[in-house]
């Protein structure tokens, strides 16, 4: 018997989507994109953030967090590998932007492929030797990698060490849309486009061979290997795609912030992004988006309790995880049931 649960937003949403026909689906999709695109204009409502500029908050942390959480979700949610060093790819993207932007005449969009490329290269280089490890060992090695990247940047002269790199160029204007520091709507729209591209990529991949391979690896790696899946290859792919999204987020962040320094790329960022993924609902794109939005937005929204806001943040993590261990919008039950038995993720 089916029990109707009005709090089960995931099933409600999936139901609406499944019942809709093609034109209706297109209408829903376009409608929600427009709604999201209008978000920067809602600054005067209850959504306003007390101290930081509202449209800036929408770009970073919220937008960039969503983007990175989606990228990390490919690694952690789809193929079940715990990556605690995701910030490394973000840093690589940001430093590519900073160095190429200040030393060459290329603009942000021309540097973007380089940033993504370097991040992917780093993903392959890290993945090849380490992805044979499992579970917590993989976690600690990726964590170490993240720290190595930060420390190398911190202690090298080409990156100007702890001083960071300033005067990173802004993206050039796209037609009538101008990138400005005090009005970051255009940045937000760029992030939204990148998020949409990422969602599109993940959804396409999920239903095809790589997605099925990741699902199999997540549920039982040995069984997947026995079934003839080249597990290492698909794990590296998942790692590299995750890295690519992280790199893209980094390039945009560098270009938006105009200044980057090693202290922006600490382990805390990796942990925060992982929290976004797990908090929202690991493996479920919409859950991850909700999680990243809340965790990115909450600390700025509650700045009026300025000093204690991280304390509230930590407490919220504990409470929500205790009462909704699968996240706010968990993935479907069928997929979940198998995971519980699988011992080591």
């Amino acid at each position: 018997m089916k029990i109707r649960n009005y709090w089960n937003l995931r099933d409600w949403g999936a139901g609406v989507w499944e019942k809709a026909n093609r034109p209706k689906r297109i209408a829903i999709a376009i409608g929600s994109v427009i709604l999201v695109g209008l978000l920067p204009f809602a600054g005067a409502s209850f959504l306003a953030t007390p101290i930081a500029a509202y449209d800036a908050v929408l770009v970073y942390p919220v937008g960039i967090f969503v983007l990175m959480a989606l990228g990390l979700n490919i690694v952690v949610g789809k193929s079940g590998m715990l990556d605690l060093g995701y910030v490394a790819f973000f840093a690589i993207g940001a430093y590519t932007m900073a160095l190429m932007g200040t030393h060459t005449g290329l603009n942000t969009w021309e540097i973007m492929p380089f940033g993504i490329g370097f991040a992917m290269l780093a993903g392959v280089l890290l993945g090849l030797p380490t992805l044979r490890l499992r579970g917590d060992y993989l976690a600690i090695v990726t964590l170490g990698f993240g720290e190595i990247v930060r420390l190398v940047v911190l202690n090298s002269t080409w990156s100007k060490g702890p001083n960071g790199i300033a005067n990173i160029p802004m993206p050039p204007d796209i037609g009538p849309l101008k990138f400005k520091l005090d009005d970051q709507k255009v940045f937000f729209w760029v992030v939204v486009v990148m998020i949409l591209l990422t969602i599109w990529m993940i959804r396409r991949l999920s239903v095809r061979r790589p997605g099925r391979a990741w699902e199999a690896i997540r549920q039982d790696e040995d069984a997947a290997e026995l079934m003839g899946i080249a597990t290492l290859k698909y794990k590296i792919w998942s790692f590299t795609l995750g890295a690519a999204v992280g790199g893209a987020a980094g390039v945009l962040y560098g270009s938006k912030n105009l200044f980057i320094a090693p202290e922006m790329f600490t382990l805390n960022v990796s942990i925060l992004i992982l929290s976004c993924v797990v908090f929202g609902g690991i493996g479920n794109i919409w859950g991850v988006i909700v999680g990243a939005t809340i965790l990115g937005y909450l600390p700025d929204r509650i700045r009026f309790i300025s000093d204690a806001r991280l304390l509230v943040f930590g407490t919220v993590l504990v409470v929500v995880m205790n009462f909704r261990p699968d996240g706010l919008l968990p993935r479907k039950k069928r997929e979940k049931a198998i995971v519980k038995k699988g011992a080591d993720a």
């Binding site: 952690v76 715990l82 929290s275 919220v316 995880m321 261990p325």
Partner: peptide, 12 residues
């Protein structure tokens, strides 16, 4: 429950 939830709870 899954291990990641516990991890995040510990991080919190």
């Amino acid at each position: 429950t899954n291990r990641l939830a516990t991890l995040i709870s510990a991080i919190g």
